[in-house]
């Protein structure tokens, strides 16, 4: 069991949350002209990071808001949580 810091509610038990995979994946804008391969890339392919991973979480049993978390996929340690639209902590490169 671990505690997750919801950016809106504060610290809550893990079982109130659910995780929905990698964050900061921008939906393609030019959808009319995408090839099947490009669609497949957007829908199915993820970075499968070992280490620090930015991912989307939702406070399912709480405020029902989506937010992002920076988690180490090896140790399960969550280093930060931040609201959608906020700059990820420690992000050097620009994110979509």
């Amino acid at each position: 069991m671990f505690i997750i810091d919801c950016p809106y509610c504060g610290k809550r038990d893990q079982t109130e949350f659910s995780c929905h995979g990698e964050a900061h994946i921008a939906r393609p804008t030019d959808t009319q002209n995408l090839t099947d391969e490009q669609w497949g890339e957007y829908v199915f392919f993820r970075s499968n990071t070992k280490g620090l991973h930015r991912e989307r979480w939702v406070h399912t049993h709480g405020c029902r808001r989506w937010f992002n978390a920076l988690r180490n996929t090896v140790t399960d340690e969550i280093f930060a949580t931040y609201r959608v639209g906020e700059v990820p902590p420690g992000a050097a490169e620009s994110q979509p």
């Binding site: 509610c9 809550r12 038990d13 079982t15 109130e16 399912t60 049993h61 709480g62 405020c63 029902r64």
Partner: peptide
């Protein structure tokens, strides 16, 4: 607080 009680929200 909105939370969980058993399996219920």
């Amino acid at each position: 607080a909105q939370t969980r009680f058993g399996n219920a929200s």
